[in-house]
């Protein structure tokens, strides 16, 4: 009997504190777009001028952070995404906006990016900006990136970066976090869920 009472006490105590923590998190997340992982609105530079996430309200947006000198990781992810969109019926594919954000503005100009992304699909958008502006968006989406000099390589430096495709719903809310190496058919299934919603 005594142990049952003690158990109830602990269940209530733990639930109470869990509730407090969740409430804190909830209030914080509502209050700001800058909570890590929350995603949210941003404005970055395309060759055609500034582009905001809210420009694509009504579409499902797929965002990938990388850099043009990336020989392997980024192209694999961009092809996976492109293929996932291609597997949709054309009228649905038109409702998906793929976005590539370069974390290497030193080497990747908006103009070069606009040509680069067209290698994947006609409506792919390439964005970049100053480092402080990229940093702000990276924090919102929990992207880790870092410029690492490679003294022994003709690369000069590489950009270590998180390889994730972020799927944002028609209202601009970040919904899916697609890890590296996810095959096109799985990305396609996630896109369909968001297009249906």
């Amino acid at each position: 009997m005594k142990t049952t009472k003690a158990l109830y006490f602990w269940i209530i105590a733990v639930s109470f504190f869990a509730g407090l923590v969740l409430a804190q998190y909830y209030l914080k997340q509502r209050g700001s777009d800058l909570i890590p992982g929350a995603g949210g609105e941003f404005t970055l530079q395309a060759a055609s001028g500034p582009v905001s996430l809210s420009d694509y309200r009504g579409k499902v947006v797929a965002i990938y952070f990388g850099y043009m000198s990336c020989p392997d990781i980024c192209p694999t992810s961009l092809w996976n995404l492109t293929e996932a969109v291609k597997q949709l019926p054309p009228e649905q594919a038109r409702q998906v906006q793929p976005v590539f954000i370069s974390v290497d503005p030193e080497r990747d100009s908006p103009e070069a990016l606009s040509i680069f992304v067209k290698g994947y699909s006609d409506n792919f958008v390439g964005l970049t900006d100053t480092k402080p502006n990229i940093d702000k968006v990276a924090r919102q989406y929990s992207v880790i990136y870092e410029k690492v000099p490679l003294k022994d390589s003709a690369m000069g430096y590489v950009m270590d970066h998180t390889s994730v495709i972020y799927l944002v719903d028609r209202r601009g809310v970040l919904q899916y976090y697609v890890p590296h190496d996810t095959p096109p058919n799985s990305i396609n299934a996630d896109l369909r869920k968001l297009l249906a919603g």
């Binding site: 192209p75 996976n80 799927l167 697609v178 890890p179 095959p183 096109p184 799985s186 996630d190």
Partner: peptide
């Protein structure tokens, strides 16, 4: 190069 179909693994 893209990932091969891997069944239901690796969803978002």
């Amino acid at each position: 190069v893209m990932m091969k179909h891997k069944g239901m693994s690796g969803h978002g």
